Amino acid sequence: MGFKLLSKLLVYLTASIMAIASPLAFSVDSSGEYPTVSEIPVGEVRLYQIADGVWSHIATQSFDGAVYPSNGLIVRDGDELLLIDTAWGAKNTAALLAEIEKQIGLPVTRAVSTHFHDDRVGGVDVLRAAGVATYASPSTRRLAEVEGNEIPTHSLEGLSSSGDAVRFGPVELFYPGAAHSTDNLIVYVPSASVLYGGCAIYELSRTSAGNVADADLAEWPTSIERIQQHYPEAQFVIPGHGLPGGLDLLKHTTNVVKAHTNRSVVE
């Protein structure tokens, strides 16, 4: 069995187990497998329904001669939608809004960016022009300005110390501490036991640490421990890039980060 097929099978099995364990909360999309990078042309966006009122959005972007996937989250909030992270750029984010209108038909009224990198804030200006209120932590807003990236308009308070959590509509926002970046936030959907790890969490097929220019490698494993301790009931975990899975993604990420750190020390 090929690795790609095995990865998709694991996603399907995880979703099936969740649907059985929580039949009222989960209505997993039966329309197909989780979209992969090879299936999404740059400039297009796919939506994948995880649970009743919960979707991931998947886009792709060219970077350094390669094409990478990027995940975000959409959560229903009454007759409105909360968006977590842009679709990595203005063109993708405009396509995301169009796809949401086509498939869901509810307005996106608020959006949260989970850290300051372009795959999370690139497209904020498109959201703002569409009347979406954009939010991020003060740290993310400051770092985005320093980096020359787009800056969300509103500040999220109460997320300055490791372990801080605040309720934001249908989700809980959690600051686990520094990891992929010093400002990275985690998003949890309690009604569906869905954990969105953003770039602080890796997919299972990833074996290298990737972009760690703004990471705190020493603190990252401790931050992941905080996530595990705060959300032990999480059933569906979405990484910032690639295929979702279960809580095993947290341990896998820790292993990859520690291996990278150990290699760096040896070198």
Rank of each mutant, 00 (worst) to 15 (best):
A130C: 06
I74G: 02
A234S: 09
I84A: 03
A19Y: 15
A98S: 14
A133I: 12
E99Q: 14
L143Q: 08
L6P: 09
G245D: 05
S31P: 10
G32Q: 11
Y34H: 09
Y34K: 08
V171R: 01
R226F: 04
A218H: 13
L6C: 15
L249C: 00
L250I: 07
S113F: 06
I186Y: 01
E99A: 15
L249V: 03
T109F: 08
P176A: 05
V67P: 15
T36F: 11
M18Q: 15
P152K: 00
V171M: 04
D164I: 06
A234L: 05
R142N: 12
Y202R: 06
Y202S: 07
A130V: 10
G246K: 11
R142T: 13
F174H: 02
R263K: 15
P152I: 04
N149D: 08
Y68D: 06
G123I: 03
R110Y: 12
T114R: 02
F63T: 09
Y231S: 02
V171L: 06
M1A: 02
G240V: 04
H252S: 03
L195F: 08
E172V: 04
I238P: 03
H154K: 07
H57M: 01
D118W: 04
R120Q: 02
P170D: 03
R128A: 13
T153V: 14
L249M: 07
V194T: 06
R120W: 02
A94D: 10
Y175M: 03
G65E: 11
D164C: 03
I50T: 06
D183T: 01
S161C: 07
L81I: 11
P244I: 09
D125Y: 09
M18S: 14
G148H: 10
T253S: 06
L143P: 04
L24E: 13
P170I: 05
E219V: 07
V187R: 01
D125V: 06
I104P: 01
V266M: 14
D118C: 05
G245P: 01
E44H: 12
G197L: 01
L97F: 03
K102T: 11
S16L: 11
T222Q: 14
S70K: 02
R167K: 12
L243V: 15
I40E: 07
G78W: 07
A218K: 14
S162E: 14
V212G: 08
S56W: 15
E145R: 14
A179D: 04
D248K: 08
I227S: 04
S208F: 09
G245Q: 02
I224D: 01
F168T: 02
K91F: 08
Y48F: 13
V166H: 07
S22N: 10
V121M: 04
T254P: 05
V187I: 08
G32V: 11
H117K: 02
N211C: 04
L159H: 07
A15I: 14
H154F: 14
L81H: 02
A218G: 13
A66P: 06
V194F: 04
K8W: 15
D79C: 05
V54K: 01
S223C: 03
V189N: 01
I238R: 01
H180T: 01
A213L: 12
H115E: 00
L156S: 03
V212N: 08
G105Y: 08
L204F: 09
H230P: 05
Y175W: 05
M1T: 07
H252P: 02
K102F: 07
E157L: 12
L81D: 00
N211S: 11
V54E: 02
G148A: 07
S30I: 10
V54F: 06
D214Y: 06
T109K: 14
H117E: 00
F168N: 01
V132E: 03
T60K: 09
A144S: 08
Y175L: 00
D125Q: 09
V187F: 03
T36V: 14
Y135N: 04
G169T: 04
